[in-house]
Design a binder for these strands. Sequence first.
DNA 1: GCCTTCTTGACTGAAAAGGTCAGAATAACC
DNA 2: GGTTATTCTGACCTTTTCAGTCAAGAAGGC
Lengths: 144, 144
Amino acid sequence: MKLSKKSEYGLRALLELTAVHGKHSLQRQEIAERQGIPLEFLEQILLALKRAGLLSSRRGMKGGYTLIKSPQDITLGQVIRILDGPLAPIGCVSKTAYQKCADCPYADKLRCPVQQVMGTVRDAIAGILDHYTLEDFASGHRKG
Amino acid sequence: MKLSKKSEYGLRALLELTAVHGKHSLQRQEIAERQGIPLEFLEQILLALKRAGLLSSRRGMKGGYTLIKSPQDITLGQVIRILDGPLAPIGCVSKTAYQKCADCPYADKLRCPVQQVMGTVRDAIAGILDHYTLEDFASGHRKG
DNA sequence: GCCTTCTTGACTGAAAAGGTCAGAATAACC
DNA sequence: GGTTATTCTGACCTTTTCAGTCAAGAAGGC
């Protein structure tokens, strides 16, 4: 039930990018310094977010990263799925990356107690993170 | 955000023990066979649950494991904490195993956005798992 | 005393987490 | 066009965790 450092750093980086959204872009270094993130590790993360279509970037002098979409159109759920994979505690209850459990002894999967309770947990987690936007996040007001 | 195999197996084992609670005890082998759990791994798990005070055991012929408490007095939250550690996604929002985050750049921790949102998630998870008893679990009726 | 079962603790192999590095590509500036 | 600043790519590394195995011992029943 843990959030990886990768996702945590990713969220913190997006916090910085949200703060300057519409004004200017930020370089890796600025983000790394302000949030205390190892520079080379941060790079990996920013690139992943770029490939996923959340950020754009420019190289060379005056380069840097920018949010592509509006902060109210990006949810924390999206970000964490990009960096950490599915939110669901076990594969057989994931909605975005379903995987049937190989060795489950319950023939009728709908009656599997583990699946039932973990489905509820998944829904609760996704219910929060998929409705929490970067804008909510950066403005720091408590939701949920 | 994942549930380990250890916890999954632990929950499944307790399902079997709940089913015979008050009637008789079960041996490792019976549990392992019915739930398809590797025998030696299951052993570790049962012992951990015993040390935590949920089970008792007898050795020798006619030995086996028994639930010590009533199934409505054990919650899934307790079980998962024993086997997997805290439910909270990050240490700084755990109520049972708080750990301050070393490198958080927010002086006023209450204003840390990561902490705010993850606190909400933790409460949601714990809200479900700490109110879901083994009895609910075994009877398979959907809660939450 | 013998067999069965739990108990303890060490051990292992594979994968993931967390991080680092060298070198290439591209953009701006002089 | 060369220099400098930045992103980009991919490989690499170390440590920890996951999932499982094994061997030897202790206790209970017969």
